[in-house]
């Protein structure tokens, strides 16, 4: 992996100069700023941003991630003809995409908090930023996996959108079905597990628990609160979110190393 840094350096430069990352950053910047101007306190802005972040960050990450890898295909071939190992190249490309996306998000959301709230939004903002960054990493990794698995670009885009739909929308429908069919059984623990398995849900619940909305969640919420309040719960949640970046990336890397160009 000795060339990862070198590749990363130039890929970062390329991506950061691209206009879309600027647009992406500006979208978050404007949105956050406007929410503040419409009289939101730090916490309320975080709450309003939450839905957008949970939908937009994964969508943009997975779409741009796949697009980027397909687009770079010829250059990848060119680089692979150089004395470069595939692992370095893959990780360098991944970093070159995930870092600007995560950075653009963090800057776009974070800056308005600095000048409106003086950074004083506390742990809720922290969780929002961390969740957004980890979701970026996870869905960029999923994007890379999709792009490596599907040679055909149209199929790849389709798969990317499908993965996003599954995680962002359909999954919760399944959870709801589980709740409504099995409600006679104690569901708190299975729900906890189901939540842990979907990075978007995990992010959503971690954010919900930051607000006193948690009180609305009654007994279920109390169990979630206790779990995610404990060091073990926090560690596990973080591990799972990170695993959602690492596992797809590893599978993608495996395929990338075996792939014919």
């Amino acid at each position: 992996m000795k060339s990862t840094g070198k590749i990363l350096r130039y890929q970062l430069r390329d991506v950061i100069r691209g206009r879309w990352i600027l647009v992406y950053t500006l979208v978050f910047l404007l949105m956050t700023d406007v929410l503040f101007r419409f009289g939101g306190s730090g916490d309320r802005v975080v709450l309003s941003l939450m839905n957008v972040v949970l939908l937009l960050v994964p969508l943009v990450s997975i779409i741009f991630g796949t697009m980027y890898l397909y687009h770079a295909r010829e250059f990848i071939v060119m680089l692979l003809a150089q004395p470069v190992d595939r692992t370095s190249l893959f990780l360098g490309l991944y970093g070159g995409m995930a870092i600007p996306l995560a950075g653009g998000y963090a800057v776009g959301v974070g800056l308005p908090f600095l000048w409106h709230a003086g950074g004083g939004a506390g742990s809720a903002l922290g969780v929002l930023l961390l969740t957004g960054v980890l979701l970026t990493c996870a869905f960029t990794a999923l994007a890379f996996l999709v792009a490596v698995l599907f040679e055909d670009r149209a199929k790849g885009f389709g798969a990317a959108v499908l993965v996003w739909l599954l995680a962002a929308v359909v999954y919760d429908g399944i959870v709801l079905m589980v709740v409504t069919t099995l409600w006679r059984y104690p569901l708190e623990r299975p729900l906890l597990a189901l939540t842990m398995l979907n990075p978007i849900d995990l992010g959503r619940v971690l954010l919900l628990l930051q607000f006193d909305i948690a009180a609305l969640m009654g007994y279920t919420g109390a169990i979630f609160n206790r779990f995610f309040g404990s060091a073990v719960g926090k560690g596990l949640a973080l591990t799972v979110l990170v695993a959602w970046s690492v596992l797809p990336l590893l599978v993608g890397l495996r395929r990338f190393r075996m792939k014919d160009f």
Partner: peptide, 20 residues
């Protein structure tokens, strides 16, 4: 209504699916 009937469903609060 769902939450009233199935309290654990509250865990889906603010989910995009629920909004839909």
């Amino acid at each position: 209504l769902l939450v009233e009937q199935y309290p654990p469903a509250i865990i889906l609060m603010r989910s995009a699916f629920v909004d839909m």
